[in-house]
C-alpha cells in the first residue's frame, strides 16, 4: 500500500473523506445528539477517543489477530473502550452522560469505527492508524458541532447553554423554532451540508 502522509490522514476525513457527509456513516447518532452543542461536543470527543485508540490497538495487534475472528476481536476492543468512556462520563460528566443516554453505548455499532478498523487499521502501522482514527473522529465531530450549532441557536436561542438571543427579540414576537429540536431537522441540515460541500468540491459529485 502506498504510504500516505500523516497530515493527509488527519486532514482528509475533515473534508474529502468525511465519514458523515461523504461516507455517510454514523448518521444515527448525528441526528440524536445534536440538539445542543455540549452533548454533541462530548459525543464527538468520545467517538474520537474510541476510534483513535481502537485503531491503535487493532493496528498493533494486526499481525497476531486470526483472520477468522478478526471482527470479533475488533468488536471486543471497541466495546471495552466504549464501556470505559461511558463509565468515565458517568463519573465525571454525569449530566451530559444522562443526555447522551444510550448513544454512548451505541458508539460500538457506529459504522465509522468498524469501517476504519477494517479498511485502515488492519493494514497499516499503529501510528498512522492512530492518526487516521483521530482524523475520522474529528471529521465526525465537526459535522456534529455544525449541526448542533444551528439547531441550538434556532431551536433554543442559545449556544453551549448560554442564551444569546436577547430577551427583547422575544418581546418583539420572535419565537424559537420548535422543529429544530426534533430529529427530522438534523436530516435536513445534514442534507444541506452535503449539498454545500459538493457544490464546493466538485470531485465529490458522482457521475
Amino acid at each position: 500500500m502506498a504510504q500516505v502522509k500523516n497530515s493527509k490522514l488527519l486532514a482528509n476525513p475533515l473534508n474529502l473523506q468525511n465519514p458523515v457527509t461523504v461516507q455517510v456513516l454514523g448518521i444515527c447518532s448525528a441526528l440524536a445528539v445534536t440538539v445542543q452543542m455540549k452533548p454533541a461536543f462530548v459525543m464527538g470527543l468520545s467517538v474520537t477517543i474510541v476510534t483513535a485508540f481502537s485503531s491503535l490497538i487493532i493496528s498493533a495487534l494486526r499481525n497476531t489477530i486470526p483472520n477468522r475472528i478478526r471482527i470479533i476481536v475488533q468488536l471486543v476492543v471497541v466495546a471495552a473502550l466504549v464501556i470505559i468512556v461511558d463509565q468515565l462520563l458517568k463519573a465525571f460528566l454525569y449530566d451530559v452522560s444522562k443526555q447522551l443516554s444510550v448513544f454512548v453505548g451505541l458508539i460500538i455499532t457506529n459504522c465509522i469505527l468498524m469501517g476504519r478498523l477494517e479498511a485502515f487499521a488492519m493494514g497499516n502501522k499503529p501510528f498512522p492508524s492512530f492518526i487516521d482514527g483521530i482524523g475520522n473522529g474529528l471529521g465526525y465531530s465537526i459535522i456534529l458541532l455544525s449541526i448542533a450549532f444551528v439547531r441550538e441557536l434556532l431551536g433554543s436561542g442559545s449556544i453551549w447553554g448560554f442564551k444569546i438571543i436577547p430577551p427583547v427579540f422575544y418581546q418583539l414576537g420572535y419565537e424559537n423554532n420548535g422543529l429544530m429540536i426534533l430529529p427530522p431537522m438534523a436530516v435536513i441540515l445534514i442534507g444541506i451540508i452535503i449539498w454545500i460541500q459538493r457544490s464546493w468540491k466538485k470531485e465529490l459529485i458522482e457521475k
Partner: peptide, 11 residues
C-alpha cells in the same frame, strides 16, 4: 494464526 488452538488461546 489460523490454527484452531491458536484462535482458542488468543480469544
Amino acid at each position: 494464526t489460523e490454527k484452531n488452538s491458536y484462535i482458542f488461546i488468543y480469544s
